Simulated scan of single mutants.
Amino acid sequence: MSKFGFLVSFIVLLAAFSFPNSSSAYVKNGSKISHPKSAIYWVQGTFSNYGLRSEVVRGVTAWNPSSDIEFVKSTTVPGGADVKIEYVDKYSGDTYGVFRGSGNVTLYKKWRVELSSIDRKETAVHEVGHALGLAHTQKSNDSISVMRQYGFNHKDTPLSDDWSGLHSVY
């Protein structure tokens, strides 16, 4: 190989490692459930009082089409559940919901009172995504992810960037 050919190859190789890879736009948060193919979830009974249990359950089971995750049952007690979703009937600033670590998700009154049904479901999908190991996506990928930090896509399922991230975690 000539010196010129070597130099060109070196520059191409250097450029390949210097630019970010757009195929990994998702961001991981370090969380991971221990039994992804036989996961159990708990939804606090208070959601049923408001007729919103099915919207929360949609947020959990929306991840089941993945070959990496399967929520196989719900439980009536939080102990032993991989993902636990509780309701707090108070406002927490502009926050609809929050992932608190160890599979714990809290949805607030603002989620119940101010959001449409589709946006409540999207929020539940988003928060469960955190429990599964996904952080907020890069802003340039907001249209292909429910893991966006602000705003809504008005979708109640994980999107392409979310699936890529999930496959990377599991």
Rank of each mutant, 00 (worst) to 15 (best):
F47K: 05
P158R: 04
Y41A: 06
H130I: 02
M1V: 14
F152N: 08
P158C: 01
G97E: 05
E127Y: 02
K37F: 10
E122R: 03
V8A: 07
K37C: 06
S18A: 15
S2V: 08
K3Y: 13
Q138K: 08
A25H: 02
G133F: 03
S160G: 15
S160A: 13
K84S: 01
W163S: 12
N49F: 00
A16Q: 08
L132F: 06
D156W: 01
G151R: 03
S22W: 13
N49M: 03
T123A: 10
W163F: 14
G103H: 02
V43H: 02
S92F: 01
I69C: 09
V113Q: 14
T137R: 01
W111K: 05
G133R: 03
E127S: 03
A39Q: 07
L134F: 10
S164D: 14
G93S: 01
L132H: 02
A16F: 09
N29K: 03
H154L: 06
T123G: 12
T76F: 10
S143H: 12
N153G: 04
S66I: 13
V77Q: 15
D161Q: 11
G101V: 02
K139P: 05
A25D: 03
F10P: 03
F71W: 01
G103L: 03
V128D: 01
T157G: 00
F47C: 05
W42I: 06
S2D: 15
D162G: 09
L134A: 02
R120K: 15
G59H: 01
S31D: 11
R53D: 11
F10D: 11
F10C: 15
G133K: 08
D142I: 06
R58T: 14
F47Y: 03
P158Y: 02
D161K: 02
H126V: 09
Q138C: 00
S117Q: 11
L13H: 00
D161C: 09
S145I: 02
R53G: 09
A81G: 05
I118Y: 01
P78I: 00
V56K: 04
N29M: 08
S74M: 12
Q138H: 04
F10S: 15
F71D: 05
Y41C: 07
I11T: 12
G129F: 06
V72G: 10
F47N: 05
F17A: 14
N141I: 00
S22H: 11
Y108Q: 06
I85A: 06
N21M: 07
L107D: 04
N153L: 10
